[in-house]
Amino acid sequence: MTHHDLGHRDFEALEQAFREALIGRGVLTDADVNERAELMYSRTPALGARVVARAWFDPAFKARLLADGSAAVRELGIEVGSLRLVVVADEEKVHNLIVCTLCSCYPRMLLGIPPDWYKSIAYRSRAVREPRSVLVEFGLTLPDDVAVRVHDSTADMRYLVLPLRPAGTDELDEAACAALVSRDAMIGVALPRAPG
């Protein structure tokens, strides 16, 4: 049996047994586990959206964000721990897409807990092989002259897509623009849309 054959409940049982063993041996405390869980639940895509909107409004920040993602995000007061962030910017003729084919690596400090589909075998195996078909299934059909760049998070880096600012948002302020940036847009399976 491989780990792919294990169901949700098997993982729950494994996690519980492992956690209880670590706590029993004094490696961790209940408080450590709760603190970590609370940190994870406090992280939502709104954090990533703030970063994206800042980059839309401040070209110098955008340049720093692309050069060193983690350092730039800390400028905004977002603590990201040991995260090594690589931000990949969409261009008029370039669309970026993030996947982790080996497991479920994801910029959790900026987007929170990944959606279930991100961890599915189907997404993980198809995103690197037929990204355009996968995007169509998410409702995003790219023109032929837009190149797709897929990024497989296989090791120590974590990725965030910086989508293009949609047309028709000139009147919006930074906070209103951030509200247009969805989790899926920062993974690369959707685009931000102007309101209305």
Partner: peptide, 28 residues
């Protein structure tokens, strides 16, 4: 040392939908 290596999708999958699309992978 860890690198990001860029591959042409057509070099990875001969049957790729768009061979000029690319795939970046972190490799030691």
């Amino acid at each position: 040392p860890l690198y990001r290596v860029r591959f042409q999708l057509g070099d990875v999958w001969p049957s790729a939908e768009a061979t000029r699309d690319t795939l970046d992978v972190e490799i030691y």
